[in-house]
Amino acid sequence: MHTPQNVIIIPARYASSRFPGKALAPLRGPGGQSRSLIEWCWRAARAVPGVDAIWIATDDDRIANAAQGFGAQVVMTAEACENGTERCADALARLGIAPRTVINLQGDAPLTPPWFVSALMDRMAQGAQVATPVLPLSHAQAERLRADRHAGIVGGTTAVTDAQGRALYFSKEVLPHGAQAGRMEVLLHVGVYAYTPAALAAYVGSGPCNTERAEGLEQLRFLHHAIPVDCVTVDARGRSFHEVNNPGDIATVEAGLRALELA
């Protein structure tokens, strides 16, 4: 049996605390077509060149049935998975394959640009263990992020990197602190990941860490256990890539989907 080199796994759960059942929420896209959020994400995955296989990983029969209904491959995973990375690892173990690269394209991010994923695949081909995109923000964009944070709104995750572009830390605060004076750029982290199977196995085997729990950021477990995370700089090219975190995000994401028809 041929082992695929680059696979995308879309982790999806039904029991979201902020938006239960959001994977099956209908969104209207180009031409007014209504599809579930998880189907839009699957279609985004299919737009990435060079991907050998795509699976939706879930523990919920409602999501599995819907996904199979629109033609997706599904792998059932354990209910105990704490985050998308754990679900990807569980899916890979159940599939019994060892691809070169596993991409975690989150099940609430249908506007993820395909070139973000391609950039991660390129970095993994160069020998990275884990890779994730970062987007340099303009001063105005960083100020908006900071204003949101002061208002108690978590408007995004930032990354701090070393001289080789590897992550030193990720936070829901706006880091580094000196960036507020314009001395350093702020890097916005985009929640897409690429891993080797070995890195995924190490992640699950090591167990959660304190910083991961404190920040609510799954990727900090890699750093805690000295697994390097390459931050790959990407360009949004003017494209919106909002996620659906709560019902209020649907209108914004629908507008983004419709904009794709005009691009």
Rank of each mutant, 00 (worst) to 15 (best):
S118D: 01
A119S: 15
A125L: 09
D108S: 12
S118M: 07
P114G: 06
L135Q: 13
W115H: 15
W115V: 06
F116M: 12
T132N: 05
P113Q: 06
G127T: 08
A128K: 09
G127V: 13
Q129F: 03
P136T: 11
R123Y: 07
G127F: 12
Q129S: 13
P110Y: 10
H139E: 06
T132V: 10
L135N: 06
P136Y: 04
A140R: 07
S138A: 12
P136E: 02
S138V: 13
W115R: 07
A128W: 01
L135T: 06
W115S: 05
L135E: 14
Q126H: 13
D108I: 10
A125R: 10
V130P: 04
M121E: 12
P113E: 03
L137K: 01
A131Q: 02
W115A: 07
R123E: 15
L137G: 02
H139V: 11
W115F: 06
P114N: 05
Q126Y: 04
M121C: 15
L111K: 03
R123A: 15
V130L: 08
D108V: 11
A128E: 11
L135M: 14
L111D: 02
F116W: 10
V130I: 13
P113A: 07
M121I: 15
M124N: 03
S138I: 14
L111P: 01
T112C: 10
D108K: 11
R123C: 14
Q129A: 14
Q126F: 05
T132H: 11
A140D: 12
V117S: 09
M124L: 15
V117D: 01
V117N: 05
A119Q: 06
W115I: 04
A125G: 13
A128H: 03
V134Y: 01
D122I: 15
P133H: 06
D122M: 13
P110S: 09
P113I: 09
P110R: 07
A128M: 08
P133M: 00
Q126A: 15
D122N: 14
W115N: 04
P136R: 13
V130K: 02
A125K: 10
A131N: 03
V130G: 05
D122F: 07
P113L: 06
G127Q: 12
V134K: 02
A109Y: 00
P110N: 06
M124H: 09
P114K: 12
A119R: 14
Q126V: 02
L111S: 04
W115E: 13
Q126R: 15
V130T: 04
S138T: 15
A109W: 01
P136L: 10
G127Y: 11
L120C: 03
P133K: 00
L120S: 02
A140K: 08
V134A: 03
L120E: 00
T132W: 05
D108F: 01
P113S: 06
A128T: 09
V130D: 03
R123P: 02
A140C: 03
